[in-house]
Design a protein around this nucleic acid. Sequence first.
RNA 1: CGGGGCGUGGCGCAGUCUGGUAGCGCACCUGCUUUGGGAGCAGGGGGUCGAAGGUUCAAAUCCUUUCGCCCCGACCA
Length: 549
Amino acid sequence: MLRAGMIRKLAAGIYTYLPFGLMAIKKTENIVREEMDRAGAIELLLPGVQPGDLWMESGRWDYYGPELLRFRDRHNRESCLGPTHEEVITDLARREIHSYKQLPINLYQIQTKFRDEIRPRFGIMRAREFIMKDAYSFDIDEEGAGKSYERMYAAYESIFRRCGLIFRAVEADTGPIGGSFSHEFMVLSNSGEDDIVSCQNCQYASNLEKAEVIVREGDIKDIEKEKTLQIVDTPEIRTIDEVTKFLSISPQKLVKTLIYQTEHGPVAVLVRGDHELNETKLSNVLNVQELTMADPETVFDVTGAPMGFAGAIGLKVRIVADLAIKEIKNMVMGANKNDKHVLNVNEGRDFHVEQYADLRMITSSDPCPRCGGKLRFGKGIEVGQVFKLGTKYSTTLKANFLDKNGRETPIIMGCYGIGIGRVVAAIIEQSHDENGIIFPVSISPFEVTILPLEIHEATVRKVAENLYQHLNDLGLSVFFDDRDERPGFKLKDADLLGIPVRATVSLRTLKSDSVEIKLRSNQDLRLISINKTPKAIKEVVQSLYDSLK
RNA sequence: CGGGGCGUGGCGCAGUCUGGUAGCGCACCUGCUUUGGGAGCAGGGGGUCGAAGGUUCAAAUCCUUUCGCCCCGACCA
């Protein structure tokens, strides 16, 4: 985008949209607008600067963290730049909505947001200031909220289809915006930031963090008899690799004991040696906000041994374990003594697990949790997300309405976001070649570009200008390259910009009284006689639109 | 916040180790030639070397401080 002259950077994560970039942005916004309107949502515009009081009332002033850009105004009032607008919209709702007769309603806006990202990167993909469409639905009951959610979900599918994107809807973690249920719309692309798993068989797709691991009963049942405990010397042998090699056992017998620090004190977590702990799942299961690996002193406090020799036996802290642990007999784990491990450990007899849960990262050998099919691991760019918020904000901010029976009830909310700039970036990421961008016609700043190769020649200029006039009359948006540059220069630039249809006028094409038509997406050239050109181009453009439906 | 790197004409960089005339490519301006895949020749303009302080006869270069940016990590819509 930088090279094509679409954006320029002002500071870290803050960009200027140049005319070309802005056109692509606006095209995207319009598609979003059309589909939102079609889905029955109503556009409004909320303020970017928001009072801190409102955020304190919702509790997110403290919770949101340094990503929220805060400042004081001249009256020393706390303020912030909106990173998202649940507070403001809920405030609006509680002032305006009083009766079930006013519901359901869905309000949206397209607006600049600011999030003070720790590390902005990938250009406009993760900017600090960015344009976002956010919609909020208000319903009287769960059923209505479900319908609103589905309507947005469907609108998102048609938006991204019209943008020419290859995408999947993925089940997602709800993050700090909160709520109960959520899908992310991911564009499949190797340059994405998010790891996703998708099923090769069914429509299942999920964030790697969120992907459920299914333990099929009896599948990996360990049928060994319980043997007696045995402590062995393992001098300086700490890592899984070293232990399995040293004791010549399989990593499936080995149990990792990880000590984590939470706001409620330390916790021990057991995971099979060849598995990786999923911290997101763990913090959900423990229901804690703070979760970090314990430092060596804490590990020593809890286990009585230095790092690398922790085990479950005799621990005084809470022990949780991954489901896979349940199946293992005669485990190997640290002995809570320096340079010692212990063999033939069994749950129930030697230690007690307080809670079993799905705590590990999914692996490539795991089956799809829906259909059991094979999973594919890949990268994705998140371009949109839909949330069921429930009554999280309406309760804390007291946005209530009177139902049919005159009872005061909190409004059920949903919120739905699309990163406009990120959509454009994802489109370019997914559709480009070594020469530059290949825009889908729906997003391209222009539908057609006219290249008069020798514009200093009167005949070339005249034919090109006539064509421009005709195409405009047909309602097409046309970019006319009137620079007196060399042909190679103009051709390269046209490729870089990525306008889908190119009409070239030159002395050469005029020899046969024709104009050359070429699509950016392939190499085919067509010579069309001058008077038939406008109609032919109109048809080509139409067929490009049709292919996006 | 941890690790690494970079700030020198508009852009990209060399020069820094070993202090001594600020240099190259692109872009820009003028002229001539050239014109279907980023032209050639000739001439020309443009830089408080990120900032501040220090060492020195002398600092882009050495020392201190500071600001900005990039990459990796932790974190995260």
